[in-house]
């Protein structure tokens, strides 16, 4: 759902950029406070992995394909929605500037959709679902699915404001395609979390208090 420059008027892109910059500043503050020498390898590997996985489009039928966005993954594995904003912003800058994937004037909107909305939806729905189910796999899958579908709907609304898509047609198509792409998002997020937790259980921070006696079922 990388919006190209041609899809949003410059003045609207500027508004999204201003909002995005506020969140980028908050993400940098998060990084300054929460980052430790120990966590740097995890953040860097997650960023490289998200970049690679974003290039891997898988067919989802109806002549459409999709790939992992990674907002939920980053937020869950690093224990903060701001981690998703931090990582997705840097990934989107490289994609936009070097590869023309996502526009420059629209980068603010892309950061809001995939980083901010994806990160917050992914993190808090994971937290809620963990409390409800106590199962990391189920919670991560659904949280990641939501973190794909809700940003896509937000993107459809932005396209309506931009005069690029009619509202209903945009919401239906973006919703339908991303409901399927969200399955990829959920599956890849669960697999990635399991792999990372298996390799380095010590540096993963779900920021959730588990009942101490039972331990974590991962």
């Amino acid at each position: 759902m990388h919006i190209p420059d041609a899809f949003i008027p410059i003045w609207q892109g500027a508004i999204y950029w201003i909002i995005a910059l506020v969140f980028i500043a908050l993400a940098l503050r998060w990084a300054r406070n929460e980052m430790s020498e120990e966590k740097i390898p995890l953040i860097a590997v997650v960023a490289a992995g998200i970049f690679a996985l974003q290039s891997f489009n898988l067919p989802v039928s109806m002549g459409t394909s999709g790939h992992l966005v990674g907002g939920a993954l980053a937020a869950i594995i690093l224990g903060s929605p701001f981690a998703a904003i931090f990582i997705l912003t840097l990934v989107l800058i490289v994609q936009g500037v070097l590869f023309g994937d996502g526009g420059i004037t629209t980068m603010g909107a892309n950061i809001i959709n995939m980083g901010v909305i994806g990160g917050f939806v992914g993190f808090y729905s994971f937290k809620g679902l963990m409390a409800a189910t106590g199962n990391v796999n189920i919670a991560a899958f659904i949280a990641a699915w939501l973190a794909c579908v809700i940003p896509a709907l937000a993107c459809a609304v932005e396209m309506y404001f931009a005069g690029t898509f009619p509202l209903n047609e945009g919401l239906v198509a973006m919703g339908l395609y991303h409901a399927l792409i969200g399955v990829i998002e959920g599956f890849v997020t669960v697999v990635a979390i399991r792999l990372i937790v298996a390799a380095r259980p010590d540096i993963v921070d779900f920021k959730i208090e588990f009942p101490a006696a039972k331990g974590v079922d991962v």
Binding site: I3, F51, F56, N57, G63, T64, H67, M159
Partner: peptide
């Protein structure tokens, strides 16, 4: 990450993504 990226060059679907399809 590099392996995933390189495999993607050859295997990734060329179909438009959700936004492009819309």
């Amino acid at each position: 990450a590099l392996l995933i990226g390189v495999v993607a060059v050859f295997m990734a679907s060329g179909d438009p993504d959700g936004l492009e399809s819309t």
